[in-house]
Design a protein around this nucleic acid. Structure first.
Lengths: 199, 199
DNA sequence: CCTATTAGGTACGGTCAGTACCTTACTAGC
DNA sequence: GCTAGTAAGGTACTGACCGTACCTAATAGG
């Protein structure tokens, strides 16, 4: 293979492999991301891959990170409901995007690789995400929109948790916006209200 | 195989296969439930299996149902908090039991078999479970313990949803009881309260 | 120019799903 | 009882895949 120009080495080859793996993930999912397929698509062979990643699952995670570059979410609409909905829509976007599909596929497929599941879970709403939800709620309290008693980790991440649960129950399909609105208006906001002082 | 006594046929053989498959599931998980293993343990061969179930995943589901015999849950402690906690503890028991482990394993492994996922999902908190949560909440309203506005499908199933989400985040380990209490006292009951008439 | 490193090529061994094809036992209908 | 259909058992095979071994060839750096 690669008869004309010189051999790729080191980082260049590594990028080529990751690129090929990412394309396999995108087109055929984790199941289709076989070592032979990746090697063929990258114009190299399995040795080059195994020298860098000891197992297929490791390559899967690396390939995902190659596409991911998780940006920290940031919203500020001025009121609690708007903030929550905006962030929720962002979560919905991420999860329903091709990237999200790959992520969910990987999470399901690599369930028996504890270390890898950990890495992926961080991408799927880990500490950074939790922090965003927490600060959002804190801002609402500062504005007097929510009672101080509402600040609680489970409360802060509840909308995201429910969206994730919805994705687990339904298939891959993007959640319709009314579902998000319902989660906010029927669950989250009443909960915040209910955690205030008894009337 | 089976040289001494006569050949098993029809239902008898089918039960033997399911029994073997269930034992494989219990000891080695879905990954270890290979067709050859099942055939060997059942004292037969793969043909007998493939004549009954077209694919491995189908056998997996059949084997699970062979163990499952889902009983409909029923609790009545007299007050809402007690009911919710009791039912939640029951859910926790089920999910942390060996049966629950098998179920979670199957759900993760057979993610690319839509029809089978559907069957399994029903076992993992489907309509029967939802109905139980709904009637529980209805009873509380009838007793005047909860406002009528609290009756809502998302509200009713929220505790179960949160427990399931917790299982998804943590590994397989049984949820400590304080987590259940926290879900009830910090989320569910405040939400029910918050859905009542504004003060 | 020489040598260590790294890529490429090829060929395995092992596991597993699913299929094919034949032989052997049993059942049922006559 | 005899016979024919049905279903079980036996065995072997294809094809996909992971992971490994081992050798050859290019190239970077001294």
């Amino acid at each position: 293979m690669r008869t004309v120009s010189g051999r790729r080495r080191g980082p260049e080859l590594e990028r080529a492999i990751l690129h090929a793996a990412a394309e396999e993930l995108a087109t055929s999912g984790y199941a289709g991301m076989t070592m032979d397929n990746v090697a063929r698509r990258a114009g190299t062979n399995k040795n080059a891959i195994y020298r860098r990643w000891p197992r297929r699952a490791a390559l899967g995670v690396a390939a995902y990170r190659y596409i991911a570059e998780s940006r920290t979410p940031e919203v500020d609409t001025g009121d609690l409901r708007g903030d929550v909905l905006a962030l929720l829509r962002q979560v919905n976007d991420t999860w329903s995007s091709p990237r999200g599909a790959i992520l969910r596929d990987l999470l399901a497929a690599a369930a028996d690789e504890p270390a890898l599941v950990e890495l992926l879970r961080e991408q799927a709403g880990g500490d950074a995400m939790s922090a965003a939800w927490f600060t959002l709620l804190g801002r609402a309290v500062a504005r007097g929109e929510a009672p101080p008693e509402a600040v609680h980790p489970r409360v802060a991440t509840l909308p995201m948790t429910l969206v994730r649960a919805e994705y687990a129950v339904r298939g891959a399909s993007r959640l319709p916006d009314p579902v998000l609105v319902e989660i906010v208006d029927e669950i989250f906001l009443p909960l915040v209200r209910g955690r205030g002082p008894r009337n």
